[in-house]
Design a binder for these strands. Structure first.
Lengths: 335, 335
DNA sequence: CTGAAAGCGCTTACAG
DNA sequence: CTGAAAGCGCTTACAG
């Protein structure tokens, strides 16, 4: 049986109101009284029941996180790294993290998860929505708590947005390949629609254009996010085209494409120059080690956690902002 | 403003008690009345406030998960995969998942996180404790809720235990190397103490012994769990010894060791045969693709979630059990 | 077959 | 400087 505030109050010889105010530092209490209360809490090993606290104060100190991770997609560690960044910084701010994966890529599923969160009374929501358009949030969230969007920027609802500079990273990658003398540069990208993929695609196109290289859509493969799909895209592309370089615009696809390239025993970068996406340790151990565009995924999570806690505590009011975290080229030996 | 049970009751023309009983199916209500209540709930888009529900019923439908993941250890996806397995099956049982990483490898931190969970009223705890001895749980958890241990089996507190057969996997790996003609087989293992590492170490030793090969402790490197540490261990081992085969007993260390081996341009398996641990997609794309011991991490999470929900609902009472999930050898080209 | 009411453990006006 | 009491939104004996 855990002790409650009543036991503490009586042990300290004060009212429960005073105990509460001492805990929350919410009105003046004399040093003397404070000491007695602290002592009583100590002795009883008192921990405030945060369920009761939540019910009364209508705050839960809990943030909900919804990210899309297919069960089949066992290699997509991007959102997991983001989640870690979120969790670790949320903890510093005294918030808990309620985790929910959208495993079906269905919008209904996403809504359902948010509704579940609602019944638990969350103070904020961090979401990488699968939808391009999230007007539905008006019905479900209303103005009950702030929403922070990560990785992609949907339309139709107001919230801060934490993104990596995918456009810049992609431009940079293609520019680098061009400078190395390539002009027949293939692209494997995740499905278009979400801003993330769109921007990376734009970066590819603009880098070509700025260098006077004609865009050829047959050098592009749009793939769903899976190892197999990356593998097949690389195979198709390399069998049809005499491309001399390949840029792969996301981490799972990079892995799959490398699977095909390793199997086919292509000499990299001599026969094919490669730049992949996302900097994980495994990119150091391919043969040769992979040049990649790094996006700061952990930091993206940290930032999202920071921003949402500012919003919750009204430190930041007014216009929603978009935060862009820089990407960078990590040069190794594949190009 | 969200609607409460009172609005539903008055809209349906019944008492709140009846509404509650309809929702929870907890006593007989006439079909007629049920219909009215359901209609009212529908119209008002009523969602029970689970904070209030928790406070009153002393259940939260929430499970806490504590796993150790160092912030530096950006490649340790084992527990993340486990967490996914847990989350996905918990969702099916109607439970939420509260996630907390122990990022310091300090026992105090672990305790603190559990205490935080306690104040939120969790119904169960799933934990991969960093401690070999968890008697402290008696004070913190008492008998308030069931605890399920994953990945490693600590002493001093009663709870079901979900483990992979690390001993068997390790034995199998070494046995395989021996059958390929190797007798000078190095081992890189995570720090001993936790049962996981201990068992894998035992498997290594017993496989040697059963084949009449003398154990030589100078062929062993004990490393902390990081890419760098794996890299350095491989370097040390290969510089000192003429080993012809290497077994690496965890995933992060495998990656680090492969980093060194790739850099040194060793011919695998000709100059060095290798078996690693954990089957991730990246093991397919090294040169050559890596033979590994697979442990079913996602399934381990699923199992943990299943067991804890059985315990919570008293479907399973009595003696705590240990569940062993089989490991398997995934043969590729590195040995 | 259903209702009136207590109470889960806190926070927070109100009052002095 | 501090206390008495209402109330957050439910569940659950108790009663009929």
């Amino acid at each position: 049986m855990r002790k409650g505030i009543i036991e503490v109050a009586s042990a300290a010889g004060v009212s429960i109101a005073t105990v509460s105010h001492v805990i929350n530092n919410t009105r003046f209490v004399s040093e003397e009284t404070k000491r007695k209360v602290f002592r009583a809490m100590e002795e009883l090993d008192y921990r405030p029941n945060s369920v009761a606290r939540s019910l009364r104060s209508q705050k839960s100190n809990t943030i909900g996180l919804v990210v899309p991770i297919l069960p089949s997609d066992t290699s997509n560690f991007f959102f997991m790294t983001v989640a870690q960044g979120i969790q670790n910084t949320l903890k510093k701010h005294g918030y808990h993290l309620l985790l929910s994966n959208n495993t079906t890529e269905e919008l209904e599923d996403e809504k359902e998860q948010i509704k579940l969160f609602n019944s638990k009374l969350i103070d904020g929501l961090i979401i990488a929505s699968i939808a391009e358009e999230v007007e539905y949030l008006n019905d479900i969230v209303g103005t009950d708590y702030p929403v922070v969007f990560i990785d992609r920027r949907p339309k139709g609802y107001g919230g801060d947005c934490i993104l990596a500079d995918g456009y810049g990273g992609s431009y940079n990658a293609v520019q680098t390949l061009i400078q190395k003398g390539h002009s027949r540069i293939g692209l494997i990208t995740g499905e278009l629609g979400i801003t993330t993929s769109n921007e990376r695609f734009e970066g590819y196109k603009n880098a070509l254009a700025d260098n006077g290289i004609t865009f050829d859509s047959s050098m592009i493969r749009v793939a769903e996010s899976s190892y197999e799909s990356g593998y097949e895209s690389a195979r198709d592309l390399l069998n049809i085209h005499r491309i001399t370089a390949l840029f792969i615009a996301n981490n799972v696809l990079t892995m799959g494409a490398m699977g095909y390239i390793q199997e086919r025993q292509l000499k990299v970068p001599e026969q094919l120059a490669i730049i992949g996406f996302d900097d994980y340790d495994w990119t150091k151990i391919t043969t040769p080690p992979l040049t990649v565009i790094r996006q700061p995924s952990y930091e993206l999570g940290e930032k999202a956690a920071e921003i949402i806690s500012l919003r919750i505590n009204d430190k930041r009011v007014g216009k929603y902002e978009e935060y862009r975290l820089a990407t960078s080229l990590v040069m190794r030996s594949s190009c």
